[in-house]
Amino acid sequence: MDKLSRFIKKLDDTNTRVGKAIQTVEDGVGYAQDLAKHYNNIAEWCGLPQVPRLFLKKEK
């Protein structure tokens, strides 16, 4: 249980390899969502399929 607890704490620490990997994945997802939003703006005018809103960032 102690090892699991330490691993979970490392997930939040961006100075560890695991933390850096998690942060990179989160950033990549954000970039993909931004790209999909811009794609949808163009796709609707060209008759192309759109990325479902479920997969996009929630607007604040």
Rank of each mutant, 00 (worst) to 15 (best):
K9F: 03
K57G: 06
T16P: 05
K20F: 05
L48R: 02
R6E: 00
L54V: 11
L54W: 02
G47A: 00
V25R: 11
V29H: 06
S5P: 01
W45V: 15
K20Q: 04
V29Y: 04
K9H: 03
L11V: 04
N15M: 03
I22P: 03
Y31W: 08
L4D: 11
A36P: 07
C46M: 07
L48A: 12
T16L: 05
V18N: 04
A21C: 12
L35F: 13
G28Q: 05
V18D: 01
I22K: 14
Q50A: 15
Q23M: 15
R17E: 14
F55S: 09
Y39I: 06
D27S: 10
G47R: 01
A43M: 06
A21G: 13
W45I: 05
C46E: 01
G30K: 05
V18Q: 06
I42Y: 04
I8R: 02
N15I: 00
D27L: 14
A32T: 06
G28Y: 00
A36F: 04
S5F: 08
N15F: 02
A43W: 05
G28A: 10
K58W: 10
D2N: 12
G28L: 11
D12M: 01
V18E: 04
L35I: 13
A43D: 02
Q50K: 15
F7S: 12
P52A: 15
C46D: 04
M1W: 13
T14Q: 15
D13Y: 08
F55N: 07
V51F: 08
N40R: 02
K37M: 03
Y39M: 05
H38D: 12
D12V: 07
V51Y: 05
K37N: 01
V25D: 09
A21R: 09
S5L: 13
T16H: 08
D2K: 14
D27C: 12
D12R: 02
W45F: 14
E26I: 14
K9P: 05
G19W: 04
L4G: 11
K60V: 07
D2E: 14
R53W: 01
K37D: 06
R53G: 04
D13K: 09
L56A: 05
A21E: 06
E59C: 10
W45Q: 12
K20G: 06
D12E: 01
V25P: 06
K60C: 07
K3V: 10
R6Q: 01
V25K: 15
R53Q: 03
D12A: 05
N15T: 07
N41T: 06
G47H: 02
Q23W: 08
P52C: 10
C46T: 03
L4F: 14
E59H: 02
A43N: 08
D2T: 13
R53F: 00
D13R: 08
L54N: 07
R17V: 14
E44R: 02
G30R: 07
G19T: 07
G28M: 07
T24E: 11
K57Y: 04
Q23H: 13
D12K: 08
L54G: 05
Y39G: 06
E59Q: 11
D12Y: 02
L48C: 11
G19S: 08
N41H: 04
D2H: 12
H38N: 09
T24F: 14
D2R: 15
F7N: 11
T16Y: 03
D34L: 15
P49C: 02
E26S: 10
